[in-house]
Amino acid sequence: MQGTIDGFRYGAVTPVAAYLMACLGGALGLRCIVRSLLDKESWKPGWLALGAASIGCGIWTMHFIAMIGFDVAEARIGYDAGLTVLSLALAILVVGVGVFIVGYRGAGKGALTGAGVITGLGVAAMHYLGMAAMHLDGSIRYDVVTVGLSVLIAVVAATTALWAAVTVRGFSTSLGASLVMGIAVSGMHYTGMAAVEVHLHGTTGASWSGDSPTSLLLPMLLGPITFLLLAGVVVMFDPLLVLGESERSRSAVPRRTRPDSAPGQRPGTGPELRAAPVGARPPGRKA
């Protein structure tokens, strides 16, 4: 028996919330990566790791918020806690690989392509590992062509995000890039979900005795969401992260004590002394 799938059980609430979390993780990740590039004296591995964790958490929370809205009418859905946590670790790890590659080697064609492919395949693996954590009284099957399309979207999205991370500097442009990233990541997720077919083992009223999606996923989502909020506080209180290259350039301009003093000239020995009236006493000489 084929199950009746509803991917939008709560209407637009779950897709909109999922998209916003993907945008938040992308925006924080981009700014942290930019921070590591703007200031050579900063602790680069730390900023890159924070950026990777932000993007990974954003992708993972997007996936499982969207999965709260996934429902099979004839079956109860549950999740394996171990695989769910493993999918979070996988998301952070593969994004970290891509981020560190472009963070240290730049956006060259070879480095960017390799990092984008690795990260995109890892994001797709996170998605389908998260799907493997789902249990119900039936089997889940996938349309191969649609799965391939979702993987392609993941690779393109990851490559674009990594390119933006090392080339985009301004705050407003980073914000725009994060909105595009949110669309790409959400598009990958819902393309992958379009490939799903559920075949139930029983006839009607089949169920699984595990936890419901909301009772398990909501508490697990609190950790990554809290992490993203704390990362947002770090970004808000770092002026270089918010203002970017323009603030760094302004702070690097040397201040001159007197505008009329030439470089290397002592203040008070400029051209104005040579223009003193005839007969004026030199400074310090008594009449």
Rank of each mutant, 00 (worst) to 15 (best):
W208G: 07
R285C: 11
L175M: 14
S87K: 05
A125S: 14
T119G: 02
I183N: 04
Y190V: 00
T119A: 03
P263F: 02
R31N: 11
P219R: 05
A27N: 12
G116A: 09
L50M: 14
A132M: 09
M131R: 03
S87P: 09
P254V: 04
S186M: 10
T61V: 14
Y79R: 00
M220K: 04
A158G: 08
A91W: 02
L83D: 01
V95F: 00
V180P: 03
T119P: 04
A111T: 12
A165G: 05
V235L: 10
I153A: 12
A206D: 14
S178C: 02
I33G: 08
P254I: 08
S178P: 06
Y10M: 06
I92V: 14
V13E: 11
G58P: 01
P239V: 05
I55V: 12
T159D: 01
L24P: 02
V95Q: 06
A73V: 14
T173W: 14
G103M: 04
A161Y: 06
G108Y: 09
V196A: 09
E74T: 01
R258M: 10
A52R: 06
P277S: 06
V94R: 04
A164E: 00
G279K: 02
V94S: 09
I59L: 07
K44W: 04
V166I: 07
L24Y: 05
A276Q: 12
E245W: 12
T269H: 12
A27E: 11
H127W: 07
L152D: 06
S186I: 07
A111Y: 01
M220G: 01
F100W: 09
T226M: 14
H135R: 11
G270I: 06
G7K: 02
P267S: 13
W47A: 03
A81K: 09
V94P: 02
L228Y: 04
R281A: 10
P15F: 07
P224G: 05
V151R: 04
M21L: 15
S249L: 15
P277K: 04
V144S: 15
A157I: 03
R105N: 08
S139F: 14
L273V: 10
G232P: 12
Y128F: 15
D260S: 11
G82V: 05
V144T: 15
A165I: 05
A111M: 05
V198R: 09
L83T: 03
G182F: 02
D80A: 06
G130L: 03
V242Q: 08
Y19N: 08
G56S: 00
V233K: 00
T84A: 09
K286N: 13
I140T: 13
H199K: 12
R266Y: 13
A164V: 00
L30P: 08
T203N: 15
L216F: 10
A158Q: 11
T173A: 15
M188W: 02
G58N: 03
V99E: 07
H127D: 07
A66M: 05
L86W: 08
Y19L: 11
